[in-house]
Design a protein around this nucleic acid. Structure first.
Lengths: 237, 237
DNA sequence: ACCTGAACACCGTTCAAGT
DNA sequence: ACCTGAACACCGTTCAAGT
């Protein structure tokens, strides 16, 4: 049942298995918890063995991001014939699913530099961008409108989801590098008292319940609708 | 003229001097280039000496982010009497100035977890949020509208500026951890040929000039106007 | 009071050596 | 062919020791 015996049943070390294990480690411990040595340990192998299958840690992280976003190309190809609004809505929700399922890995998608400067996360592969542009161009978008939509869509997704993932990732366990998930997290009351002694925090104090409410799903959907409405207006000019 | 002699003229080691040097190091080498040892070296001192003034690397990074965002509270207090649209526009541009001046440090603002889960970057201090809410509440925003504006404003800034900072930061020098700024960057032609042999990249290829155009300032301004328009519509309902 | 040397427990990575 | 031991050049951090 240990990782080691799993592997010795014949699965062998492979790039895919290594990337799977790396993603699982990031999901559980955060990006700071991913080291070549810890990953080797997870797989019942010495760290040095990993270098036979990945070119180094950068390549490994790239692999993790690629695995996380691979599903997006599948969704985009499947929905390529849909109306562009439906297409964008389905892609957006597919990206949000990734952020919700992997809150501690999502920052990697948002912050790692794509292969070219004109690629923007989370649609950071040439194939993904090509499908994106083709779908919009086929439905009446001009070149400029399609490229503008790519940029606006990218910024929208990163802005919404990086902040949502941060909240969800913090729930899973502290992300402060040195501190494991065993740290005593002061709940509500303790935090409250430390805020109250500041001189000018009246509104924050009064509105804290409201500030703490989670409407991330609704906010995402309405912000997405606003983006789609704007694109539609631009299109009809 | 060396850092060491600068310090021995009497400036002494201090938390502020350490944080200044850390920010400068991140600006020049990226976050991966900031180590306690490299920072000590920069200041003409052993790494261990830094621990007398900062509590550790996490505290140091927190200090860097606080220094980067300190100016925002100043701007907000100065503009607190302005119309809320002017107020938000000035704050937004102040945040963008930070991203443009410190493209390699800006990801720290976007990704480091604030002190409480209801704080969102880049307005990640209680004081900043309190001023923000007070200004809006004083001009007719309901509690819900003010909190909603805080969230929308935060997401907008992170989405726009993290992607803009990534492009500018890549220009300054490769952000891939192991690779210094001396790596030979293939310019245009080399990248082009590597993309062309893929089967289905027609639109990306045709639109690459358009994709590479930098309209970040205009896009920021128009996206900001759209956000302000939406808030105004909500307000008048 | 302030800085340092030495040490500890980690990193990523390379490469000759083992099986 | 695939994995490992040993080694190198780094990390963050602690603490007794120096000045």
């Amino acid at each position: 049942m240990s990782s080691q015996s799993d592997r010795s049943i014949g699965s062998r070390l492979s790039r895919d298995a290594i990337i799977d294990a790396a993603l699982s480690l990031v999901d559980r411990k955060g990006a700071a918890g991913l080291s070549m040595r810890a990953l080797g340990n997870e797989l019942g192998v010495e760290a040095m063995s990993l270098y036979r299958h990945v070119h180094g840690k950068e390549d490994l992280l790239e692999g993790v991001v690629d695995e996380l976003t691979a599903e997006l190309v599948v969704v985009m190809e499947r929905e390529a014939q849909a109306h562009w609004q439906t297409f964008l809505q389905n892609v957006a929700h597919a990206v949000r699913d990734i952020a919700v399922e992997h809150p501690r890995a999502f920052p990697l998608i948002a912050t790692r530099h794509p292969a070219a400067p004109w690629l923007r996360p989370p649609l950071r592969s040439i194939e993904a961008v090509d499908i994106f542009l083709r779908v919009l161009l086929a439905q009446g978008f001009s070149d400029e409108q399609a490229v503008g939509a790519y940029r606006g869509f990218s910024s929208f997704l990163i802005g919404q989801l990086l902040l949502e993932a941060a909240v969800r990732g913090a729930d899973v366990g502290g992300t402060i590098a040195g501190q494991g998930e065993t740290g005593p997290v002061p709940t509500g009351e303790a935090q409250t008292s430390s805020l109250d002694d500041a001189p000018e925090v009246r509104e924050v104090r009064r509105l804290r319940p409201l500030l703490s409410e989670d409407h991330s799903k609704e906010e995402f959907d309405t912000a997405l609708e606003i983006l789609l409405d704007r694109l539609e207006v631009d299109l009809s000019l």
